[in-house]
Write a protein that binds this DNA or RNA. Sequence first.
DNA 1: TGCTTATATTAACATATGTTCATATAAGCA
DNA 2: TGCTTATATGAACATATGTTAATATAAGCA
Lengths: 103, 103
Amino acid sequence: MDMEDKYEELDEETLFIVSQTFKALGDPTRIKILHLLFNQEYSVNDIAETLKLRQSTVSHQLRFLKNLRLVKNRREGTTIYYSHDDEHVMTVLNQTIQHALHT
Amino acid sequence: MDMEDKYEELDEETLFIVSQTFKALGDPTRIKILHLLFNQEYSVNDIAETLKLRQSTVSHQLRFLKNLRLVKNRREGTTIYYSHDDEHVMTVLNQTIQHALHT
DNA sequence: TGCTTATATTAACATATGTTCATATAAGCA
DNA sequence: TGCTTATATGAACATATGTTAATATAAGCA
């Protein structure tokens, strides 16, 4: 776990990116969505049904995640499939879930 | 980085803990404070002066972080020194700062 | 074209969040 | 004890956030 814990200066831009990233992970709904997308892609409706959320809620949160490039999508007819698009964030999320589970 | 990315169920309690943890990291002020505490302990006033924040702001945020056991403190006379208290969170924070810096 | 299905968008709303000022508390010291 | 310094707390405030219902858009198909 502790591989390269070197200390670096925190410029404003980096601070903003980092805080935005963590803010994205700071909401239960978004965590559920990302967690669901861990293994495979899902359509908006499938996400909504699986997680028992409104379609508009899911759509809003997917836009949020897409703005941060944490997810990407592809269209197939009228259906749009979402999948995760940031390996680092998915790793961090998974590490933290693991940590919370085993504590 | 990808060592043990195993998928696990997300129960409500774990979800809550994980989201709270990330929420703590989702604010620039708290990131600055934790980042400052990376190497050494600081008093409340030193944190405020170093980061150019109000004393009450720092105190409020330290309480927030302490509630989540992300920092701990010790008293020395009238001065209270704070230091980080969650290695996993500090590692995740540092990893993400590194990642943001080198992207 | 008109209908259907899937998704996105908008506005409204309630609640959460972060900062600030003012003040309280707590410890050390003359 | 009374004063000073360091920190914590409470209330007020502005802003951010997340969800919802209603509606718009967009693509496929009869």
